[in-house]
Design a protein around this nucleic acid. Sequence first.
DNA 1: CCTAAATGTAACAATTCTCGTTACATATCT
DNA 2: AGATATGTAACGAGAATTGTTACATTTAGG
Lengths: 144, 144
Amino acid sequence: MTGNSRFAVSLHILAYLAYRAGMSVPSAEIAASVDTNPVVIRRLLSSLVKARLVKAQKGASGGFSLASTPDNISLLDVYRAVEPQPDHGLKHFSPNHKCPVGAKIESILHAIFFKAQAGMEAELAHVTVGQVHAQLHAVCPGKK
Amino acid sequence: MTGNSRFAVSLHILAYLAYRAGMSVPSAEIAASVDTNPVVIRRLLSSLVKARLVKAQKGASGGFSLASTPDNISLLDVYRAVEPQPDHGLKHFSPNHKCPVGAKIESILHAIFFKAQAGMEAELAHVTVGQVHAQLHAVCPGKK
DNA sequence: CCTAAATGTAACAATTCTCGTTACATATCT
DNA sequence: AGATATGTAACGAGAATTGTTACATTTAGG
């Protein structure tokens, strides 16, 4: 795969839970909306539950629901819950420390990538699941 | 690999070319600094040449050199030259359009990812290869 | 209390990406 | 002419992602 789709699918999941407005929603129903296997959905939900963004209810008539108001969940919360720590290629980057450039470049790149990452996360921080939900309704107001 | 290291290695390459101050540098020498195979270096340089950031000289005593002043090359130029178009997982994301959520989520996510990407690129835009080069000298002033 | 429905997770295959490596054609300086 | 470099194709190993099957565990509800 080019890039992983964990973040995109997770946002779909949370938007769907917001759409179902507090109901307990089984993974199979979400999987039908995302068009994938329920296990894929449960794997992501497992991370979202650990991050306290979602509550899980086992057993018959169980399922998942948001742990708080959609407006209280930022996309940065979601991003951090499901995306692995971004390394920007530095994990497999071991330059020759005997070279003056190789000796110093690593820490310089680290600082640069940190700032770039911060710039991206700042954009995610001020968008909420509630806003995504609102955009869904803006064009498609009729709840099924 | 977790993520690709094209951008990181490319910055190392350009910092090395700046460090060698206009000399024609063969890929083998750069590879020694990065600690990898010369073909890996030439592959990346191929992209950098296409983007007009670097000049190549074939034949004996040939090699590579910066196409302009280090201060005229921004990290965003480099990023765009060597990184594939980021899709944020949307390429392999085809939700069920029969569902009200699945029908609309894709374009909403597209807009969100575009802004997030722009936030990151803005940080890269105001850093130059010249600044990276300056940081190298700041701690290690003795050129070999 | 029993059954149906649901989560939680392990395991595995198929696909894709990245990187290192070898090989070789081509170009060019000395 | 010969040594030195680029340019690029081809291939394999390793890792990550996703879909899938399988199964243990939990729980609501009749």
